[in-house]
Computed example of a mutant assay.
Amino acid sequence: MKQAKISVDDDGVEPQVCVIELGGTVGDIESMPFIEAFRQFQFKVKRENFCNIHVSLIPQPNTTGEQKTKPTQNSVRELRGLGLSPDLIMCRCSTPLETSVKEKISMFCHVEPSQVICVHDVSSLYKVPLLLEDQGVVSYFCQRLSLPIEMRPRKMLTKWKEMADRTARLLEPVSIALVGKYTKLADSYTSVIKALEHSALAVNHKLEVKYIDSADLEAATQQDEPVKYHEAWQKLCSSQ
């Protein structure tokens, strides 16, 4: 509650919304103290100031292609048993959620169909906010938390859409070599990759990152594995 009152800009204005993420899987013993804290927190700040969003995976096995709802049903049931009822259920899936699947989740998880949000894979991460907007998430927040967003010119969303559309039109490539010790674990360099992606977008270039193991560039590799050595140097030299 104290953090929610701290301004995120230099203007000193108190934020309208504070987002709290509780990671992990519902039912894990490690997260139980935090779930209990959430349960108590919702009563402390009152319902009109607390909106619970549950993110759930909708598996889609390659064998059948059927979108499975059981994991979502089970996690919501367990969440309710712990004293938390989701206001929105964000369904992560590889393809758009089928209407019948959405209605099934709505029925068995005790929420309106409009409260079941499909967050399927898209070509760019920047398109996710637009995906949520199309499904009425912003309007829901306005009503649920009494936010005056609808009364203001929504210039930011227009600018965001322009940026998302621009990512799909990038044609001129730029290749950057990333030399490191842990290049086989791409997550180790996530902050670097995101910074490069933002920079490439700012100058209207399509980014291609070439991962190079630093050990492959050393003289010892030239003696032991000359092919790997020359491939690594060729990849480095061909980067722009």
Rank of each mutant, 00 (worst) to 15 (best):
D165W: 01
S100Y: 07
N74D: 14
K5L: 13
I89K: 02
S124Q: 08
K102L: 06
L132N: 01
L185V: 14
D165K: 05
L82I: 00
A219C: 09
Y182W: 10
V116T: 03
R47D: 07
V174M: 15
H198T: 14
V111Q: 05
P86V: 02
M1C: 10
P96H: 06
P96M: 12
S56L: 10
G27K: 00
Y126A: 07
E66L: 08
D213N: 15
A202I: 00
R77M: 08
C109W: 01
K194V: 10
V179K: 04
E98H: 03
P33D: 06
K228P: 06
K194G: 00
R166V: 04
I149N: 01
E150K: 04
E112L: 08
P86Q: 07
P71E: 03
R144I: 03
V203K: 15
L79E: 08
Q40P: 04
Q40I: 13
Y140V: 03
Y126Q: 07
L157M: 13
V55F: 09
M32A: 14
S139W: 05
N204F: 06
R80M: 12
N62S: 09
G136H: 01
Y189N: 13
L171C: 08
I35L: 15
L82D: 09
N52V: 15
K70Q: 06
V122R: 12
D87T: 04
L145H: 02
M156W: 07
D10F: 09
S175T: 13
K127S: 14
H120E: 15
K194D: 14
S85R: 05
E231Y: 11
A220K: 14
Q143F: 09
E225K: 15
F41T: 12
E197Q: 11
D87K: 01
L125E: 12
K127F: 13
Q60S: 05
S239D: 04
V227Y: 15
D165G: 07
V174I: 15
L145F: 04
T72F: 03
S106D: 09
I35W: 06
S214Y: 09
V203Y: 09
E197F: 07
V101Q: 00
I29Q: 07
Q16M: 12
E98V: 06
K46Y: 05
F38G: 06
D11V: 10
Y182A: 10
R154Q: 12
E78P: 00
L207N: 04
L132S: 00
I20D: 04
W160H: 12
M1A: 14
D121S: 12
A186K: 14
Q40V: 12
K44S: 12
S94F: 03
E98L: 06
L236Q: 07
S146Y: 09
A37F: 09
E112S: 06
R169W: 05
S56F: 10
E150W: 04
L131T: 06
E36H: 08
E14D: 06
I58L: 10
M32F: 12
M151T: 13
A4S: 14
K194A: 11
I29C: 11
D87P: 02
S114K: 14
S239L: 06
V111R: 03
T63L: 08
S238W: 02
V17H: 06
L157V: 14
I20S: 10
W160S: 02
A177W: 01
S100L: 07
D10H: 08
